[in-house]
């Protein structure tokens, strides 16, 4: 049937390796292999300080993952409602959702983090981890909302009419007919958002959340090995995003045309 190849881009994520783009695919492989070789050889040939760094940061990697996955899950929910709100015919709901998106898109994530932790923190105590996840969710919820909106809008109006004419209500039409189809268009840009979000979690280190970057900084200030520490931190981030982008590309491959299920 109509197989529109709609591409939605909101924030710029990482390049997703795809076999349809051999150049990109090769670049991904070369970078990953290079990164792994660099990490391994640094640890083997110069265990002091590299091996010590590697042993110091895993707690941080875990926190980075926790912030990432919690924020992804929550921002998907916020994003779905924001996207639906932006499409709502109810003026008030539409306005609230649209203003939310405008406000969030106009404020740097770092400022949002500070705002939630420090500014709101003057009124009530917020745990840094909670503040971090909240800020990431609020920010990426708005981005995801735009992705959902575009995905839902990409579905032919005839689908809604067919469902409504059978007797489905508005919300049944949305959940049984429109959203399942929109998922196909939504998945690639959502994958991009995941990766962008993971990278942006490094900002939360500023709120005393012991993520990968924060742990690195702790190590560096103790040992003064700034160059070695940040080299390793950068390599670790790179490896994580490369692997995540591969996971996203595998997910995208799973979204086959309906007749090839």
């Amino acid at each position: 049937m109509r197989d529109k190849n709609i591409k939605i881009d909101v924030t710029d994520g990482a390049a997703i390796p795809t076999r349809r783009d051999p150049g990109l695919f090769n670049a991904w492989r070369v970078t990953l292999i290079g990164t792994v070789i660099a990490i391994v050889s640094l640890v083997i040939f110069k265990p002091d300080p590299y091996l010590r760094i590697i042993k110091f940061v895993p707690d941080g990697i875990l926190i980075t993952f926790q912030v990432t996955f919690l924020s992804i899950a929550l921002s998907l929910i916020v994003g779905l409602f924001t996207g639906l709100g932006r499409l709502s015919k109810n003026r008030a709901i539409n306005l609230i959702a649209s203003v939310y998106v405008e406000v969030i898109r106009g404020i740097p994530l770092l400022v949002q983090l500070f705002y939630i932790y420090y500014a709101l923190g003057t009124f009530f105590r917020i745990h840094p981890f909670t503040a971090a996840v909240t800020a990431m969710t609020v920010c990426y919820g708005a981005y995801m909302g735009e992705v959902f909106r575009a995905g839902i809008q990409s579905i032919d109006k005839g689908q809604t009419e067919a469902a409504r004419s059978l007797g489905f209500s508005k919300s049944q039409t949305m959940f049984y007919v429109i959203i399942p189809q929109a998922m196909r268009t939504i998945l690639p840009p959502v994958g991009n958002e995941f990766i962008a979000l993971l990278k942006d979690t490094s900002l939360v280190s500023i709120l005393a959340v012991s993520d990968l970057l924060r742990r690195g900084r702790e190590f560096a200030t103790q040992t003064f090995a700034y160059f070695e520490t940040y080299t390793m931190v950068a390599l670790l981030y790179l490896m994580i995003t490369l692997i995540l982008s591969k996971i996203v590309s595998i997910m995208e491959d799973k979204v086959k045309p309906y007749d090839q299920k």
């Binding site: 049937m1 109509r2 032919d156 005839g158 689908q159 009419e161 067919a162 469902a163 007919v177 399942p180 189809q181 309906y258």
Partner: peptide, 9 residues
């Protein structure tokens, strides 16, 4: 409908 509008999924 003219365009069938079957559910493709």
């Amino acid at each position: 409908f003219q365009n069938f509008n079957l559910f493709p999924h």
